[in-house]
Amino acid sequence: MRHIISILMENEAGALSRVAGLFSARGYNIESLAVAPTDDPSLSRMTLVTSGTDEIIEQITKQLNKLVDVVKLFDMTEGEHIEREMMLVKVNTQSKNDREEVKRLADIFRGRIIDVTKDTYTIELTESCERLNAFLESLGNVSILEVVRSGVIGIIQGDKALTV
């Protein structure tokens, strides 16, 4: 099953490689990984998406907790949560038809066209991972030139918060 694990860790050089190294050394999957400092500059927040059986996920959370740089972590998938990922897509819009179709789809998916050239549109979309996939699929025959995704981030729904 797919899990979104949020990790608060010391914002120190090498912290990211400790997590990445743990996953490769123990043969765990990483589907995506996003990391940036929080409002407290001494803390980084990392969101990683992984998948595995309950036993593997239990080992992953235990092994992550064992890393000295990890302050706290939470498996978002255990409860109600909101997940978001940002995607930038550059598509070929040489034909009028494609230009209209892309504009329409961007509106339906609540995306924004953020760059326009004679031959291309660049769309920005912030949604759940699933919705982003749906958008790419719906582009159908439109020729995609480039896809950039930020990796998933997540937050607990309601008044609970993951803080130190």
């Binding site: 036993e55 239990e58 092994q63 907790n65 064992k66």
Partner: peptide
């Protein structure tokens, strides 16, 4: 003492 050792190989 190490939670990660528990239920790693044997439930």
């Amino acid at each position: 003492i190490d939670p990660a050792s528990i239920s790693k190989n044997v439930k």
